[in-house]
């Protein structure tokens, strides 16, 4: 199950598992988020391509609005998935 916690300063903290069954719920939150946005991934155990797709949609939307999206505190195995997807060159991952 994926949990999304809203924190101060335009931060959304994702924890748990971001699989294809979580897409609809995640889109409901991320689709409304305004920029600049920071997504904290410290508590994320798992992400699949469906979850990456939601993050990418959010990135594209915010970019079109002239806003920034940053991903922070990604655990190594989550960072690896973004790397394999070739997205660590496109997204800001800290």
């Amino acid at each position: 199950m994926l949990k999304i916690e809203e924190r101060e300063g335009g931060v959304l903290a994702l924890s748990g598992r971001f699989d294809a069954a979580q897409v609809e719920a995640a889109q409901a939150t991320l689709g409304q988020a305004t920029g600049p946005l920071t997504i904290n991934l410290a508590g994320l155990d798992y992400i699949a391509s469906a979850g990456i797709g939601v993050v990418l949609q959010t990135f594209k939307r915010l970019k079109a609005e002239g806003q920034e999206l940053r991903l922070v505190e990604a655990p190594p195995h989550i960072r690896n998935i973004f790397h394999y997807a070739g997205l660590d060159q496109i997204l800001t991952i800290e």
Binding site: A48, S49, A50, I52, G53, I81, Y84, A85, L87, I90
Partner: peptide, 23 residues
């Protein structure tokens, strides 16, 4: 195949899952 070196705007939707599988 997904071209992971292409700019985001030029990427076609879909295919990322299989790309990850092959890794």
């Amino acid at each position: 195949r997904v071209d992971t070196r292409a700019p985001l705007e030029q990427r076609q939707p879909g295919g990322l899952g299989l790309h990850l599988v092959l890794h």
